[in-house]
Simulated scan of single mutants.
Amino acid sequence: MQFSTTTDGGVTVIRCDGRLNMMAAPRLRSVLEEAVEAGQVRLVLDLEPTVFVDSSGLGALVAGLKTARRAGGDLRIAAAGDQVLTVLGLTNLDRVLRPYESVGQASHEW
């Protein structure tokens, strides 16, 4: 999995490209922690190019949410595909990590 980060208007967008599984989850946790440590606490994960998420990936998402909220911010997910949305729904995490249709929608509702 590859991660790319952009910041615009105080919102940091992290694009997750590939499979968010046990191999990629530790790197995502690090990317999110580094962003928060740098003062970027309004985070949007662009999951459009994410084709798969497993329990390790979900754990990284929850850890990132907790890290952002402890710092006074939030973590939002955007543009998730069917597989990701299904997993979020089955685990009821879509109630905590409310999915947004697009990065723009997630960013502008702050």
Rank of each mutant, 00 (worst) to 15 (best):
R70W: 02
L65F: 10
T86I: 02
D74F: 11
L61S: 08
G89S: 13
A71R: 11
L47G: 10
N92C: 12
K66L: 12
L43C: 14
A78V: 12
G64M: 00
G39T: 13
L85M: 13
L90P: 03
V44I: 03
L43V: 12
L90C: 04
A60D: 06
A68V: 07
A78I: 07
A80V: 08
A68E: 03
G57H: 03
I77R: 12
N92Q: 14
S56K: 06
G89T: 03
A79H: 08
N92I: 00
A78L: 08
L58M: 01
G89W: 05
I77G: 12
G57R: 01
L75P: 11
D46H: 06
R76H: 10
V62S: 04
G81V: 11
G89Q: 10
T91K: 07
E37A: 15
R69N: 04
A38H: 15
L90Q: 08
S55Y: 00
A60M: 01
V51S: 12
G73D: 09
S55K: 00
R76T: 09
R70Q: 08
A80D: 08
A71L: 14
L61K: 02
G72P: 07
G73C: 06
T67G: 06
D54R: 04
L88I: 09
L65S: 07
R42S: 15
S56M: 07
E48P: 00
D82L: 15
Q83L: 11
G73T: 05
Q40N: 14
